[in-house]
């Protein structure tokens, strides 16, 4: 069953949350105003990302995150292989990069793309179930909880957050049963969590932590989307 829509109505954060909670496997195509992106997921984890700018081949990925020089990329490309696995083996054999460099480089590249998507407010999306990247691509599984948390911290549009969390004075928070062990929370996240109580409104939590409304909304929104907290409405 395909999922189609527009990011105006269903944001990147909500989309990733849906993929995460439903443990979806498939391909998410996003057509933005100036760029297109392709994300692949397996059982709710992000495994590959690319944009139409560089099509997500290994050499281009490693160049973009500073692990290869342009000269090295040219050398690799002159080998004539389009398979990332073959290319990876060549890079390791030539001692240009280690296996860890490749894994970390692919991870950094994927994160760079996906974090950028949090700032897309317009554009269409289309999720196709059970479509995986080509077998020759190098995939690195990433936990979406942390991606959603970090991506939400980068949201700069106060309007969208205001829409999601309108009246901070009347809503309180509840911590869910989700284990926090694998989630990377910041010091600010922990400060908010330490003040969660049914009697404390979100506004009071912000005041206790000297946070402005935009800051607290970003933190609460991120934790909500990652399933760490739930809202208690009056």
């Amino acid at each position: 069953m395909a999922l189609k829509g527009n990011l105006r109505d269903f944001s990147t954060t909500q989309l990733l949350n849906l993929v995460n909670l439903a443990h979806k496997t498939g391909k998410l195509s996003l057509d933005g105003q100036s760029q297109n992106a392709l994300l692949y997921f397996k059982e709710g984890r992000l495994i590959h990302a690319s944009t139409d700018a560089d099509e997500g081949h290994l050499a281009a990925m490693l160049f973009k995150v500073g692990r290869l020089t342009q000269e090295q990329v040219n050398t690799v490309n002159s080998q004539g292989s389009s398979s990332d696995r073959v290319m990876g083996k060549y890079l390791m054999d030539a001692r240009l990069v280690s296996r860890d460099d490749i894994v970390q480089g692919v991870k950094d590249y994927m994160l760079e793309i996906v974090y950028d998507l949090f700032s897309w407010n317009d554009g269409t999306f289309h999720f196709e179930q059970d479509i995986l990247p080509a077998k020759d691509r190098i995939t690195v599984p990433l936990n979406l909880d942390n991606v959603i948390l970090e991506g939400s911290r980068r949201i700069q549009e106060a309007d969208r957050l205001q829409d999601e969390l309108p009246d901070l004075a009347t809503i309180a928070l509840k911590i869910t049963d989700k284990p926090l062990r694998d989630v990377k929370l910041t010091q600010d996240d922990w400060r908010v969590i330490s003040h969660i109580h049914p009697r404390n409104s979100v506004k009071q939590i912000a005041q206790n932590n000297n946070m402005d409304e935009f800051q607290i909304r970003k933190i609460v929104y991120g934790m909500m989307q990652a399933g760490i907290v739930e809202l208690i409405r009056p």
Binding site: M1, A2, L3, K4, F10, Q14, N17, L18, L21, A22
Partner: peptide, 13 residues
Amino acid sequence: LPDAWSPDDVRIA
């Protein structure tokens, strides 16, 4: 309809 979101997806959304 072919583009219908499943009930499970609607629940999450």
